[in-house]
C-alpha cells in the first residue's frame, strides 16, 4: 500500500502549483483554474487520510468540497463576465483602477 507521505507530497505539489499560478498570472480564468488546483489538493489529503484511518468520512467530505468548488466557479465565472463587460479584458490588474 502506498505510504501516506507520497500522497502528502503530491497534494503539496498541486497546492503549490495553484499558488504559483495565482501569484504569477494575471488572467482571471487562470486564477479560477489555480484555485481549483488548490481545492483538489485538499481533496487528495482528505481521501489519503480516509484510507490511512480506514474511515469513510474524508471521502464523503471531499464530495462536499467538490460541490463547493462548483458553486465557487459559478460565481467566479459570473464575476469574470462582469469584469469583461466593464474592462473588455479579463486581466485582474485592470480592476485596480476601480479604487479611489
Amino acid at each position: 500500500m502506498v505510504p501516506a507521505q507520497y500522497y502528502l507530497v503530491l497534494s503539496a505539489a498541486m497546492f503549490c502549483i495553484g499558488l504559483f499560478g495565482i501569484l504569477t498570472r494575471r488572467n482571471a480564468l487562470l486564477f479560477l483554474m489555480s484555485v481549483e488546483l488548490m481545492l483538489t489538493a485538499a481533496n487528495i489529503n482528505f481521501v489519503a487520510f480516509s484510507l490511512q484511518h480506514g474511515n469513510l468520512t474524508g471521502q464523503v467530505f471531499s464530495l462536499f468540497t467538490i460541490a463547493l468548488a462548483a458553486a465557487e466557479v459559478a460565481v467566479g465565472i459570473g464575476i469574470i463576465l462582469v469584469l469583461y463587460r466593464s474592462f473588455r479584458d479579463v486581466d485582474v490588474t485592470q480592476a485596480t483602477t476601480m479604487r479611489w
Binding site: 500500500m1 505510504p3 507521505q5 502549483i17 501569484l23 504569477t24 480506514g54
Partner: peptide, 28 residues
C-alpha cells in the same frame, strides 16, 4: 512572487518526508 510558492513546497516536502506514519489501516 512564484518563488514564495516554490519555497512553500520546499517546506512542505521537508516536513512530510521526515514525518513518520503508521501503516495505512485501509478498508478491511
Amino acid at each position: 512572487p512564484g518563488l514564495i510558492a516554490l519555497a512553500l513546497f520546499g517546506v512542505f516536502a521537508a516536513v512530510f518526508l521526515t514525518a513518520s506514519f503508521p501503516d495505512p489501516a485501509g478498508f478491511a
